[in-house]
Design a protein around this nucleic acid. Structure first.
Length: 255
DNA sequence: ATGGTTGTTAAACAA
């Protein structure tokens, strides 16, 4: 079973790339973030023609999350009790016996800003939702754009990023509080080359110089994580013309 | 400390 996540930074712009990638990689589940469209504009029919069921929780201009899956999704949730958030950043569903939670974590703009405070608060509420999800579901995967680099080895220049947004200690603690629910970062269950990132700033030739951060994660509960055979970042789409600033992250699980 | 780029939507705003 192959599960993937990709922040596409506008599904309207990236749809051809997403369709090509689905055809090449054949994931069983693909979580998308930053679709930046209303539900009415979501191209469910195109995905259906490719053999994928699709769920979408969107809004105009900002945010927006989707789940594509070979098997039909069950028990979809977009607004868990207590999250109390109008921004479309969370989409959960059960697919092939796995509870899947797709997150587009708040960016937070700058450490100390109002948006930063909102990010930390949002992460606390999401943690509470995930705690309840973990109690209900043995096989749980939480994946998406976390907008947090877990450790300094996930950062191209840790000194430049020291205590900056995406890397600050409170953000990393908020992520750790989620991982402490028993969710492991499957990418780090395997030996990986250094300098593996999932996001590169469009500015200042960030990708060409591999000035990136690993902020797109796949977390899995232990019973599922034990079945993980492989996890990688597919940088190929980042090399294309008019790419997203993020690359897809993929994990494979034994049936 | 600031700039660099992309996307959405109409000059900012978000990332």
């Amino acid at each position: 079973m192959r599960i993937a996540t990709w922040n596409v930074n506008s599904l309207k712009v990236r749809l051809p790339q997403v369709l090509d990638w689905l055809g090449e990689q054949q994931p069983d589940i693909l979580a998308l973030q930053e679709t930046k469209m209303k539900d009415e504009a979501f191209p469910a029919g195109v995905f259906r023609e490719m053999g994928y069921h699709a769920l979408h929780s969107g809004q105009p201009t900002y945010n927006g999350v989707a789940l594509l899956s070979r098997e039909a999704p069950l028990d979809a949730v977009t607004d868990p009790p207590g999250l109390d958030c109008t921004q479309r950043r969370l989409l959960a569903a059960s697919i092939q016996g796995v509870r899947v939670v797709n997150l587009y974590v708040v960016n937070g703009a700058e450490v100390g800003s109002e948006k930063y405070a909102f990010k930390l608060d949002w992460l606390r509420r999401v943690r509470d939702f995930l705690e309840a999800e973990r109690e209900r579901h043995g096989s749980l995967v939480v994946l998406g754009d976390f907008n947090i680099a877990p450790e300094d080895r996930d950062v191209h220049d840790p000194e430049a990023w020291h205590e900056r947004i995406l890397c600050s200690t409170p953000e990393r603690q908020a992520l750790k509080a989620i991982q402490d629910l028993g969710l492991s970062d499957v990418f780090r269950r395997f030996q990986q080359p250094e300098g593996q990132y999932s996001w590169w700033d469009y500015r200042a030739a960030g990708f060409r110089r591999n000035r990136g951060l690993r902020i797109d994660l796949i977390l899995a509960s232990e019973p599922l994580a034990m079945r993980c055979t492989r996890a990688w970042i597919d940088v190929a789409p980042r090399r294309l013309e008019r790419p997203s600033d993020h690359a897809p992250v993929v994990a494979e699980f034994q049936e």
